[in-house]
């Protein structure tokens, strides 16, 4: 049963990821990436990370991809053909690098010694919040500084000069 859910989510994630990076229309790219992120959220839930599965849907599918769609609408969905098609060297190098990453990862995973999980952890909000606000409190504060810097930076970048 769990295996079936995993296989369905994995196949759907890979197919929609391929559509997301290969289709011409940026709106379809973003919408199929939403499907990929939902499938990754299903995988988080299968791994017992319930809070992260919810955060994945809220942050990625909810906030980030809406931001992408907003910018695509703002720029008016550019339809011009991409200029990179007649560049065989770059295309070969890109595909070769991607293949190396995939083959290396698969070989690593296949030769990995699989032990039964040490102790089942449940990533509910209480446990994660406790870890984040005690052990990792400094990183947590740094993240808030980073978000503030990103917000100010984004505003400065798009500000019109009068």
């Amino acid at each position: 049963m769990v295996m079936t859910v995993f296989v369905v989510a994995a196949v759907l994630a890979i197919v929609s990821a391929l559509v997301a990076v290969s289709h011409r229309d940026p709106v379809i790219n973003v919408l199929s990436l939403v499907v990929t992120f939902f499938c990754v959220a299903v995988n988080f839930a299968l791994l017992g990370a319930n809070f992260l599965a919810a955060a994945q849907i809220l942050v990625y599918a909810g906030a980030l991809l809406v931001l992408f769609l907003f910018v695509i609408m703002l720029l008016g969905a550019p339809q011009a053909p991409e200029s990179g098609l007649h560049r065989p060297v770059q295309k070969t190098a890109g595909l070769a690098l991607a293949a190396i990453v995939i083959i290396g990862g698969v070989l690593l995973a296949l030769t990995m010694k699989v032990l039964p999980p040490a102790s089942p952890v449940t990533g509910d909000a209480r446990e994660i919040g406790k870890a984040m606000l005690t052990t990792h409190a400094f990183s947590f504060e740094l993240i808030s500084v980073l978000l503030l810097a990103a917000m100010v930076g984004a505003l400065m970048l798009v500000k019109r000069k009068h």
Partner: peptide, 21 residues
């Protein structure tokens, strides 16, 4: 864990191909 790591490697490779191509 191997299944999840293989899925992660595939997604990483697809994303890298998208960035590079």
């Amino acid at each position: 864990i191997s299944h999840f790591v293989i899925l992660a490697a595939l997604l990483l490779g697809i994303g890298a191909a998208g960035v590079l191509l």
